[in-house]
Design a protein around this nucleic acid. Structure first.
Length: 561
RNA sequence: CUCCCUGUAGUUAAACAGGAUAUAACUACCGCCUCCUAAGCGGUGAUUCCAGGUUCGAGUCCUGGCGGGGAGGCCA
């Protein structure tokens, strides 16, 4: 509807140019908004105020002339000029109600589009090191990253979800040493406990399984424990597999699946790291100092240069990161979006600098980053910091056990990634409209319940029977709901473009509120037959939009509650 | 010291890339089930941290303060 109006306005402007009211066709695209106040019409346009200065006439005069220049159409009921020069458009009611038919015919395709045109995008997220259970922060990353994937898919991109993990560095050595110590009966209080060892109780579980000779299957490999307490390599491989399996279980119960797992160690095995170093050297972006090899990241906007090969010959973490992203580039992803915690902020400049240094035509802003801020967990009014399992942090599994998958996902994704998040356990458990998850799901369940009761009334045609009568849906509450349903495709596109899934959550809350108001204001099943059919069509359309929206967030849409 | 995020009713958030009278929920008080799920609906509250600036118009953009969080290492 917006685009149709934009076309009308554009041809109106062309006519004004032809009439010499405007000297040139403006290069600004008219901005069309939904006014907050319904007295301001259904859509409003600010173009007259924007162009008034260059046209050297007052905004309101320009608006008058523009309205006169608009072509004939069936869209607009009437127009109005308000305030400093807004043009307010009142759309014919039949144009509004038509969306119900559109939704019912498109079914779960409503809101989807092909802006991405099948181009390939990769979303990398979670990417936790396999050294312990996933914590709340990983959960936020999982919820946001997965929703981003769903949004990009819905807008026509071909999405790959990838999980990258470090199975080679110092942290993994510490893991193996910790498991070994546990297997030998030592605890964290023991003087011989490894420095920087992992202290959580889960280490004991891994040690026990290792000694028992268990076989574990993680997403990408199967490993049987060797049992030998002195074989550190075997302990390491087994421990990694064990913890990866635990993480995968948590992610699966969180409805998050990955297409590919990428091991840091493979970058060493394939020689990608060495190749990357050589390329950076050949391109003249490196220098030696104090027996270390430095990358001149200052050439690419960093505030100081960074060491890439340490004095002891090992690489710092960002070098494999550069090699890894070069690999992604070679795999042909037009876009790569990395969802990470805000503590990874400093890697952005370095990785991009390294990629520029390779000089292989990678765009400056590639890859893109979505960084989420910290999560704190509240319960009974105070901050929760401990999990029995992990020892020092609240795990994702804890959260899912406490409040369930749906509420956990919703709460973690419903807030802008850039804002700090307090996860209130009591709120997530609350069974009232304090709790937006249930508020939205309840609206969906109400729709489902109505349609179930209406089966005989609807007959063979089903909900389509109401379409000839939707013009009768003219009450304010009803039209408000319809207009919001019509916004859904715009909301999806905006959320995908801005990489902000929480837009969808806010939108759904609005739709649910509109629906509950409509439900309370009007009888649906007991209305006059034609009206009942029309309202049922609207109920079905609402149910579809809520279900599709919740799906974008990875939250279920229950038929009954 | 430098960089990033952030500051909106008592509380938690919203404001659809700068729009019109800043929107909701919680809380308090009042009302609504012989009726389609009351996990619901309807009614009453703001100097948008402070000071400047940009313009037709600023919660939103810019500059400078103040407050909260995070990052800065030959750690990942």
């Amino acid at each position: 509807m917006k685009s149709e109006l934009a076309t009308l306005i554009t041809s109106g402007l062309q006519k004004l140019v032809a009439e010499d009211v405007l000297r040139v066709m403006p290069d600004v695209t008219p901005q069309i908004d939904h006014p907050k106040d319904t007295a301001h019409g259904d859509l409003s346009c600010n173009i007259a105020m924007v162009l008034a200065k260059q046209a050297k006439i007052s905004p309101r005069d320009l608006a008058t002339q523009l309205i006169a220049a608009l072509p004939d159409n069936t869209l607009i009921e009437r127009t109005d000029i308000a305030g400093p020069g807004f043009i307010n458009f009142f759309i014919r009611a039949s144009q509004h109600t038509a969306v119900i038919g559109t939704i019912l015919e498109a079914k779960d395709q409503y809101g989807r589009c092909d802006i991405g045109r099948g181009r390939r995008v990769q979303v990398e997220f979670v990417s936790a090191n396999p050294t312990g259970p996933l914590h709340v922060g990983h959960g936020r990353g999982a919820a946001i990253g997965d929703s981003l994937g769903r949004l990009l898919t819905a807008t026509g991109w071909s999405v790959q979800r990838e999980f990258y993990y470090n199975d080679a560095g110092q942290q993994i050595n510490n893991l193996a040493l910790s498991v070994q110590a546990r297997a030998k009966g030592k605890g964290p209080e023991d003087p011989e406990w490894p420095v920087d060892g992992y202290r959580g109780e889960y280490i004991q579980d891994v040690a026990t399984a290792y000694q028992a000779g268990d076989t574990v299957h993680a997403a990408d490999r199967t490993i049987t424990a060797d049992g030998d307490l002195n074989n550190l390599d075997a302990i390491q491989a087994f421990s990694v597999a064990c913890l990866r399996r635990e993480q995968d279980q948590d992610l699966r119960s969180f409805s998050v699946l990955f297409d590919r797992y990428f091991l840091e160690s493979s970058l060493y095995e394939s020689g990608a790291v060495a190749t990357t170093v050589r390329a950076l050297e050949d391109n003249g972006h490196t220098y030696a100092d104090q027996e270390a090899l430095w990358l001149k990241t200052t050439d690419f906007g960093d505030d100081k240069d960074r060491v890439m090969r340490k004095r002891d010959g090992g690489y710092t973490y960002f070098l494999p990161d550069v090699a890894y992203h070069h690999d992604k580039w070679q795999r042909g992803f037009e876009r790569v979006i990395n969802e990470q915690g805000a503590d990874h902020h400093s890697t952005i400049t370095r990785v991009r600098a390294g990629l520029q240094g390779l000089d292989v035509g990678i765009p400056k802003g590639w890859p893109e980053y979505v960084l989420h801020q910290m999560v704190t967990v509240m319960r009974d009014g105070s901050e929760v910091k401990l999990s029995k399992r992990a020892g020092s942090y609240v795990t994702l599994r804890d959260l899912i056990e406490w409040v369930g998958c749906d509420a956990t996902r919703f709460f973690l994704v419903a807030r802008a990634p850039t804002s700090q998040l307090t996860f209130d356990i009591d709120l997530a458990l609350a069974r009232s409209n304090e709790n937006p998850v249930y508020y939205i799901q309840y609206a969906h369940a109400r729709c489902a319940s109505l349609l179930l009761k209406a089966e005989t009334l609807l007959g063979d045609e089903g909900v389509m029977a109401g379409l000839p009568h939707v013009d009768t849906l003219t009450e304010p509450e009803t039209l408000g709901l319809i207009i919001n349903l019509a916004r859904f495709p715009d909301v999806v596109v905006a959320a995908a473009e801005r990489l902000e899934p929480h837009d969808v959550a806010n939108y759904l809350r609005q739709v649910a509120a509109d629906f509950h108001s409509f439900y309370n204001a009007h009888k649906i099943l007991d209305a006059a037959p034609d009206t009942a059919l029309a309202r049922l069509a609207l109920v079905a359309a609402t149910q579809q939009v809520i279900a599709s929206g919740l799906d974008l967030l990875g939250v279920s849409a229950p038929e009954a509650m």
